[in-house]
């Protein structure tokens, strides 16, 4: 996972670089929580451009991080999902709390 923090808007970009399943989530979760508690962002953006696969383990991962950012008074967004990942996300209903943002809306 790569991360980039934009100080100006207090946005933390979390770029996931592996397939997301039950096996990989543990590591990704730890890395994400480290970055979130380190930067205390106002917003986290999950960047899926390098993710080719995600199953329901990803839903649990995103909800968990959403709870953390909510505690900090912030929000979360998703960008750059492929078709099959968008399908899993849509089915879970998670997009009501963590919306997918189109590229042109992202600063």
């Amino acid at each position: 996972m790569n991360s980039r923090f934009e100080k100006k808007d207090n946005v933390l970009y979390l770029e996931i670089t592996e397939e997301i399943d039950h096996h990989t989530t543990e590591k990704v979760r730890r890395l994400m929580d480290n970055e979130i508690t380190r930067f205390m962002p106002r917003k986290i953006v999950f960047d899926f451009s390098k993710v080719s696969f995600m199953d329901s383990a990803g839903i649990g991962l995103l909800i968990g991080r959403y709870k953390l950012i909510k505690l900090l008074g912030g929000t979360a967004e998703i960008i750059n999902t492929n078709k099959s990942i968008a399908k899993v996300l849509e089915m879970s209903g998670i997009l009501k709390i963590i919306p997918i943002q189109n590229k042109e809306n992202v600063g």
């Binding site: 329901s56 649990g60 909800i63 089915m91 879970s92």
Partner: peptide, 9 residues
């Protein structure tokens, strides 16, 4: 942090 969506998917 399991979502309970396995069988649904």
């Amino acid at each position: 942090e399991r979502s309970g969506m396995g069988f649904t998917i």
